[in-house]
């Protein structure tokens, strides 16, 4: 037991004793195992991966391996598939997230008000999120198959398709298959977070608005939306990044085909790395994707900062 007496003359200085040193170290003890594993399994491979992008690194040609400067990036600039995949990534992310948010918001608003059977309704409509991503991909792949699913028939009956055929093999429509699966799978996530956010809106705000004579729509427009927006920016940001980064549905459903028409960047990275075994080029693609996502995040946070003022 330490009973060190501090010189009262230097009251300003922070006393350093064994107990206080231990106390200062305590948070790091709780953090260390988790942070270490994240650093080892995510940060280190990331740095290694970025370094690959500056190398000539094709697994079939080990002799040719070496630093190649910006060669991979130059190649990427003139790669038509890269530009196509980039455009597709934007399309894929935009439509997926847009529909996830709007349908999720609708669902959250439905779930916020009590109605008979709400609890069971909630667990049923949230179910898609429990479905493993690859499985929702397979599931929707089958649903778009006119042989085993009525969906193409229905789509053609309401005039969205000229005949009951598989949109996944149509170069113009293939990307919308995985987008549909992504929306289906992601709506519950947004509904959950939006529901949580809605519940944190102080109810006296609504009461005050009602006293001021606001209609339901006006209250939504002037109270709910301004309240949700800043809270939701981070969620939207993380989800957008996650969707943009996620190759699984496309990999499972179309493999990027037909003829790269549904190729997105992460899936292109995956196929470049494991079909053509060109790790250097794949890493350059991934690095570009990451830089774009970082810019996107900074932009969104900047917008959030402006909104906050």
């Amino acid at each position: 037991m330490s009973t060190t007496v501090n010189d009262p003359g230097r009251t300003g200085a922070s006393p350093r004793t064994s107990r206080q040193r231990l106390t200062a170290a305590e948070p790091y003890l709780y953090l260390a195992p988790g942070i270490a594993i994240v650093a080892l399994v995510m940060l280190v491979p990331l740095v290694v991966g970025v370094s690959f992008s500056f190398q000539n690194y094709v697994i079939f040609r080990p002799a040719a391996r070496g630093w190649s400067g910006l060669e991979n990036y130059a190649e990427l600039w003139s790669d038509r598939t890269f530009w196509l995949a980039l455009a597709n990534t934007a399309k894929w992310t935009f439509w997926s997230v847009l529909f996830q948010i709007s349908l999720g918001l609708g669902l959250a608003l439905i779930l916020e008000k009590p109605f008979p059977g709400r609890a069971i309704f909630q667990s049923l409509v949230f179910l898609p999120w429990a479905v493993p991503t690859f499985l929702s991909g397979l599931n929707w792949q089958w649903l778009f198959n006119p042989i085993v699913s009525p969906l193409p028939g229905m789509l053609s009956a309401i005039g969205m398709l000229d005949e009951p055929r598989n949109i996944l093999s149509d170069p113009d429509l293939a990307l919308y298959g995985p987008i549909t699966a992504m929306i289906w799978w992601g709506v519950p996530f947004f509904a959950i977070t939006l529901l949580a956010a809605l519940r944190s809106v102080p109810s006296d705000l609504y009461e005050a608005a009602a006293i001021d004579g606001a209609t339901g729509w006006e209250a939504f427009r002037h109270i709910t939306v301004p309240f949700l927006l800043p809270m939701m920016t981070i969620t939207i940001l993380l989800r957008t990044v996650w969707v943009a980064n996620s190759p699984e549905l496309i990999f499972v459903m179309t493999g990027g085909g037909p003829a790269n028409t549904s190729q997105t960047l992460p899936n292109y990275v995956f196929t470049s790395a494991y079909s053509s075994m060109n790790f250097g080029y794949a890493s350059a693609l991934a690095s570009v994707l990451m830089v774009l996502l970082v810019f996107y995040s900074i932009f969104l946070l900047w917008i959030r900062g402006r909104l906050g003022q």
Binding site: M1, S2, T3, T4, V5, N6, P8, R10, T11, G12, A13, S14, P15, T17, S18, R19, Q20, T23
Partner: peptide, 22 residues
């Protein structure tokens, strides 16, 4: 709370560095 300076005594013990339980 840790103290940034000075001395606290309870009874005849200086407790600056003792955890609450002690």
């Amino acid at each position: 709370e840790d103290i940034s300076g000075g001395e606290i005594r309870i009874g005849d013990r200086v407790v600056n560095d003792l955890p609450p339980r002690a």
